[in-house]
């Protein structure tokens, strides 16, 4: 394969993961384990970093073992590989940032049942070489991260008047009546719905233009 071709393939994978097949607004997958922590931007960053780490590395690892794994136990092996990385994240957080681990509660562990991780391992890890599987996992989870960061930024600024814990001018002042609902669970549902709506609308416009 020529380097040029490899480059265009990589670009293709990136576009798919970040935009065309975006896990959130296209597939609406894997939101269970992360939506809960989007009330604060900091929690979202840590959670998404954990997810990026798990998805890209477990997809690459599954790919390394793809010829050695018997078909009928594949799901079990994938679960064990994902579990291995989730445990690493959990132990690291527990050792270096226990307060964050307490904040995130069960959600770090829940990465294990996040549909995206298993989905990427099945779609790419099980069939493609490790490098490609890693890139695909990385791009898909980054596509996921950027949408969740948008949601988290709106929720924290509108609901608490802060960004990363620092007061934001105007929104933290007396002129802004804080929208407490944004930091409660219904706020997360509404915000996610709006984001899904907006990006789907944008995509549809783009596709119509392309025709």
């Amino acid at each position: 394969m020529s380097p040029g071709m490899a480059g265009s393939q990589a670009k293709n994978i990136a576009v798919q993961g970040l935009w065309k097949d975006n896990p959130i607004f296209r597939q609406v997958l894997g939101i269970c384990s992360t939506l809960a922590v989007t009330n604060l931007v900091m929690n979202t960053i840590v959670m998404c970093a954990a997810l990026v780490f798990t998805v890209s590395l477990s997809s690459a690892t599954v790919s390394v073992f793809r010829t050695l794994t018997p078909r009928n136990v594949r799901m079990m092996v994938e679960t064990l590989i994902i579990g291995f990385y989730v445990i690493i994240v959990d132990v690291l957080l527990g050792a270096y940032w226990p307060s964050m681990r307490a904040n995130l509660g069960p959600y770090v562990g829940l990465i294990l049942t996040n549909c995206i991780v298993m989905g990427r391992c099945e779609a790419y890890g099980a069939t493609q070489p490790p490098g490609k599987a890693f890139l695909d996992g990385l791009c898909t989870s980054l596509g996921y991260t950027f949408i969740l960061l948008i949601i988290a930024a709106f929720r924290e600024i509108l609901g608490l008047g802060t960004f990363l814990g620092m007061p934001v001018p105007f929104f933290s002042g007396p002129g802004w009546d804080k929208w407490i609902i944004m930091v409660t669970p219904p706020g997360a549902f509404f915000m996610l719905a709006i984001v899904v709506w907006f990006f789907r609308w944008l995509q549809q416009k783009q596709e119509e233009k392309a025709k």
Binding site: I181, P186, A193, V196, W197, R200
Partner: peptide, 21 residues
């Protein structure tokens, strides 16, 4: 069109969550 399927379901879930609060 953009709200069909998951979008409207999420809005409904938000309203239900409000009621449960």
């Amino acid at each position: 069109r953009g709200l069909q399927g998951p979008g409207i379901t999420l809005i409904l879930a938000g309203l239900m969550a409000l009621a449960f609060i």
